[in-house]
Every structure is written in structure tokens, then in C-alpha cells.
Amino acid sequence: MEDDFDGGTVKKFMFVNRKAPYGTIYALEVLEMVLISAAFDQDVHLAFLDDGVLQIKKGQDTKDLGHKNFSPTYRALEGYDIEKLFVEQESLEERGLTAADLMVDVEVISRADMAKLMGEMDVILTA
């Protein structure tokens, strides 16, 4: 922990998304945090589990809500060099979804592997 503020240290960060978009502000706030984190050249991982998998569901249309549809922004992450996106298989299945329902390239992994991956992180932020 001594090297927390050492600019040269690259840490493994994981942002864990567990909430559906639009019902609360969490999904959008995490997405903004992820975009900002890209400026700090850290090893950023993004995980989608539980209702969080809905954040990257294809075909979102928020016109009738009068809300901004921020789902296209997930497709911009690649340009920010954030390419480690993981989705939990069980969470997809529980919601009747498959990888084909998702709008970005992701790695679908099991809950057990997701747990293992979390164990490899230096910093985890769940929302």
C-alpha cells in the first residue's frame, strides 16, 4: 500500500457493474469514472454481473423516457484502450440473455472465474 501515490505504479482496477441502467444513476456514474480512469494508464477491467449485464444489452432506446441513451458510449471504450470487458455467464442466463444480445465484444466467464479474477485485483469498485 506504500506505493499508492507513486505515479509509476500500474495497478489492476476492476469496476464491477451490478445495476441496470436508467433506474438509478450508478451505471452512468461508473461509466464516467471508467472513462476518466483511462487517463491514468492503469490496468482497467470492467465486469458486468447481476443486472449490470443489462447495461450493454443491444437495442436500447430511451426516447420515450426523455433520458439520454448512454449505451453507445460502451462502444467508445475501445478507443480509450479499455478492452478488458468481462460478463458473467450465470447473470446472462438468469436473465434469458446470451452473448449475442450484447452490443460490445466481451469475454463471457463463469461466476467462479469472475470470483477468481476479482481476487487478482488491487482495487475493486462495485456499484
Binding site: L35, A38, A39, K68, N69, F70, P72, T73, R75, A76, G79, Y80
Partner: peptide
């Protein structure tokens, strides 16, 4: 129009 955000300078330059 495509991504619904204004890109960071670094990303804009690259794009």
C-alpha cells in the same frame, strides 16, 4: 453522434 460523448483529447487525436 456515434458514441454520445465528447472524446478526451488523447482519444480524439488518435481517432
Amino acid at each position: 453522434a456515434e458514441y454520445q460523448i465528447a472524446p478526451a483529447v488523447r482519444v480524439l487525436t488518435k481517432a
